[in-house]
């Protein structure tokens, strides 16, 4: 009797889940595993994905990993078990994804990787890696600087100091590489100091203080790998008695709200966008894939640069 009852329950549950599937019709189900909510940038990223899914009529199953890989693995496995139509995730670290990616492949579920890359040899494991091109961001910062220098008619040696991101992180390595690549064409720019500010305001400020004490007024330009370090450095420059944005020209990357406030106040000269708003592009890629179109292995987010002149106009449109 008991057995029969259990059978009945399972049967009912199956029936419900089958009708559940049927009700959705041909609505695409996308499972997305987010890293967490560690910064304004990340929150904007989440918002963009959620709202784009809604606009495109995609059924989004969202899971927050709270900065832990084990949570992401768990989430992806549960997406596979639920037989979603597609899986997307922002990997918190680069390594350790082989097993779960293989499980997804075996289950014939396409995987879209967003924002950061994974360190897996076999690229048939995923459809595309979508996100910012950090090297290009470095190049854009450099190009803007060269144009600005030409406009301002700068002559002679120009001393640059650099605040690097966290040692060994992809954005730090690639932004530095891109910047140096372009700067080669203008040898009068000399990078006299380069240290890590660990992507934080506190370290950015502390390192800039040390730079100022060592080089003083010789510093003409600051290139910071993210806005937060630039914001910290701006405080250090003000406390040193110089005018950020005037005595020292500052260019940084990300274009977060704080950077716009600094630009409007004339303390930051340019911020290169590193956009978290990749929701629409992701949804488009998922739809295209389902429609049988070929998707490039690498999709770069639509990004631009924001010189201080446009900051006030752009500020109300900013979402992060």
């Amino acid at each position: 009797m008991r057995k029969l009852f259990r059978c009945a329950v399972i049967g009912a549950a199956l029936a419900v889940s089958v009708t559940g599937c049927g009700k959705g019709g041909d609505k695409i189900v996308l499972g997305f595993s987010q890293i967490g909510a560690e910064s304004e940038w990340r929150t904007a990223n989440t918002e963009s994905i959620k709202s784009a899914a809604k606009d495109e009529g995609i059924d989004l199953k969202f899971s927050d990993a709270q900065q832990k890989q084990e949570n992401q693995l768990k989430a992806i496995r549960s997406f596979i078990a639920q037989k979603v139509d597609a899986i997307a995730f922002s990997p918190v670290v680069t390594s350790g994804w082989e097993a779960v990616l293989k499980e997804a492949k075996d289950a014939n579920i396409p995987v879209f990787i967003t924002d950061r890359a994974v360190d897996v040899q076999d690229d048939s494991m995923w459809v595309t890696v979508m996100g910012s091109d950090f090297t290009e961001e470095g190049r854009r910062a450099a190009r803007w600087l060269q144009e600005y220098a030409a406009k301002q008619n700068w002559k002679g040696t120009i001393n640059v100091v650099e605040l690097q991101g966290t040692v060994g992180s992809a954005p730090a390595i690639e932004r530095k590489k891109g910047f140096e690549e372009v700067m080669k064409s203008t040898p009068n720019f000399k990078t006299i100091r380069s240290q890590t500010g660990e992507f934080t305001r506190a370290k950015g400020k502390e390192v800039m203080e040390a730079f100022l004490k060592a080089e003083g007024k010789k510093i003409n330009v600051l290139f910071a790998h993210n806005d937060d370090m630039a914001i910290g450095a701006i405080q250090a420059i003000e406390e040193y008695g110089l005018k950020p944005g005037k005595d020292i020209t500052i260019v940084s990357i990300d274009a977060v709200k704080g950077a716009f406030e600094a630009m409007i106040a004339g303390k930051l000269n340019c911020s290169v966008e590193c956009s978290p708003l990749l929701g629409p592009q992701l949804m488009q890629a998922v739809k295209d894939y389902k429609a049988g179109k070929t998707i490039p292995k690498r999709i770069v987010t639509n990004e631009t640069i924001f010189p201080a002149e446009v900051a006030a106009k752009e500020f109300p449109n900013r979402k992060y």
């Binding site: 690097q164 040692v167 060994g168 006299i192 100091r193 380069s194 240290q195 890590t196 502390e206 390192v207 040390a210 730079f211 004490k213 060592a214």
Partner: peptide, 16 residues
């Protein structure tokens, strides 16, 4: 020590 490391040019961030 920290300040010294920041103000010596020759020390690369990787070696801090």
């Amino acid at each position: 020590l920290t300040t010294t490391i920041f103000s010596i040019k020759e020390i690369k961030p990787e070696a801090n």
